[in-house]
Nucleic acid binder design. Structure first.
Lengths: 155, 155
DNA sequence: TTCCTTGCAAACACTTTGCAAGGCC
DNA sequence: GGCCTTGCAAAGTGTTTGCAAGGAA
């Protein structure tokens, strides 16, 4: 729903990005596609198709999984969403404009999101040294969160 | 979890690690398991099951995919290998003692390994700020490699 | 001899695709 | 009306599992 980087009137809403992407290649706007888009944004990311579909069906029970897969592919290709693969064999999607990295507690599963400009700058630097042009990245730090370390200490 | 160069007599070879892991739980050493292990190490990592199986079958054509899956699970559980999921829907394995980060060309699939101490230091720093103690991490940079950028330019 | 391991094929989970009906422009 | 999109079911992937035969200890 709401977003962080609002530039007054020049705001590029996901709806607008998608609309342009579709009209550029003769694709059509449909009730299902709008529903997938709004559900995805309302949920805020990290959902897999199954979870997304469940929420979508609260509104329209007849939407099929195939449509969700097809629409998420569209969102991915148009740059609105990013597909991520964690270890669980499913694809999860995140809002492209809200990319961040993750701290994951291997003990309780807590996921903390973060962003670090210095690290990102160094990533570009490393890539450049290898002749790469980076378009995306993924960084996950695994370990123990403060609460779990605390629990382990008193146990 | 850094540094694993060979220290003469105290060397913990993968064979030894695996042997201990298996004997601790009554598992047996077999021709197939040894073959999977040696092939995996000889290849140096980043192989998926299909590729691994192809190399294994050059030696013993009768080894089944199931055995490779089962053995790689064993190697993963014993801490000898790490399972990694890149964007292609398959599981790739790497040698646990040779952890590094990856640059992945989204055009040709090339994987380049790298390590950057400055980035790793900053990762620990970020984690500390969030109260986390990091034990492992994963970082992948996606983009276009030099060769593919070249090709795109001349096309 | 005991019980683990193997190869095979079937089962699985997730995702993609062919097709006829339906819907947007 | 033309052509894209949908839902369904079938087909594809990559991976796991049940089972009977084979093999290590």
């Amino acid at each position: 729903m709401r977003d962080q980087t609002n530039h007054s009137e020049s705001a590029e809403t996901p709806e607008r990005v998608l609309a342009r992407y579709m009209s550029e290649r003769g694709l059509k706007s449909t009730r299902q596609r709008s529903l997938v888009l709004s559900t995805f944004f309302h949920a805020g990311g990290h959902l897999n198709v199954e979870e997304l579909l469940a929420r979508i069906r609260e509104v329209d029970p007849k939407v099929s999984a195939a449509t969700v897969y097809r629409t998420m592919k569209l969102l991915t290709e148009s740059g609105i969403a990013h597909a991520r693969h964690f270890g669980d064999g499913q694809t999860r999607f995140e809002i492209a404009s809200e990319h961040h990295d993750h701290l994951i507690c291997t003990s309780c599963g807590t996921i903390v999101e973060f962003e670090d400009d210095k690290i990102e700058a160094l990533q570009l630097e490393v890539a450049r040294r290898h002749g790469f042009t980076v378009t995306d990245h993924k960084m996950e730090l695994y370990g123990r969160c403060g609460a779990c370390a605390e629990k382990a200490r008193s146990a």
